[in-house]
């Protein structure tokens, strides 16, 4: 590949990286809002996944998790702590996928609570596929931000 071709490829990779970072950032920012405003509802949703049984743990997660999503989203969008925020997004998506798989395996009927608390957003295969897609996008961001700053 000549110098021009290489710089063209690097340019495309850069655009994909910024676009992916921005999309994931927006997803987290949007997802965090209703959870921050309605912590009681969010605690009920977490409880319904039946992964945690202690109410203190469930309440603690309901207080902390929306803010982790919020800061992850903000930092990904503005490009501060790129590595940390991309790692955070990666871990969050992994955790979500685990929760969905657990729910499907146990046959638990619950709402996702991802972007709203409506009855229509049930946990199931479409949700799993969506989160896997998000995880793949995040993997690219983690990989690129690691390579970029090395």
């Amino acid at each position: 590949m000549d110098g021009k071709g290489l710089s063209h490829r690097v340019g495309i990779e850069k655009v994909i990286y910024y676009l992916s970072r921005f999309i994931i950032g927006l997803i987290f920012l949007y997802a965090s809002w209703h959870k921050i405003v309605h912590p009681h509802e969010f605690a009920k949703v977490i409880y319904n996944y039946k992964i945690f049984h202690s109410k203190e743990v469930v309440n603690g997660i309901a207080i902390f998790l929306p803010w982790l999503e919020f800061y992850t989203g903000v930092f990904l969008i503005i490009g501060v702590f790129e590595r940390g925020s991309s790692l955070s997004a990666f871990i969050l998506f992994l955790a979500f996928i685990f929760a969905i798989l657990y729910t499907i395996y146990m046959g638990i009927d619950t709402n996702c609570g991802c972007f709203n608390f409506s009855e229509s957003s049930k946990v199931g295969l479409p949700l799993l596929l969506r989160d896997i897609l998000f995880l793949l996008l995040t993997s690219y961001v983690v990989f690129y931000s690691f390579r970029k700053k090395r």
């Binding site: 207080i63 902390f64 998790l65 929306p66 803010w67 982790l68 919020f70 800061y71 992850t72 930092f75 702590f81 590595r83 940390g84 925020s85 790692l87 955070s88 871990i91 690691f146 700053k149």
Partner: peptide, 19 residues
């Protein structure tokens, strides 16, 4: 690699604090 970890820990810390 270390930077990844420390930045992530910082984000976790401010999330707990703000929450």
């Amino acid at each position: 690699m270390k930077r990844f970890f420390w930045e992530f820990l910082f984000i976790v810390f401010i999330s707990i604090f703000t929450g």
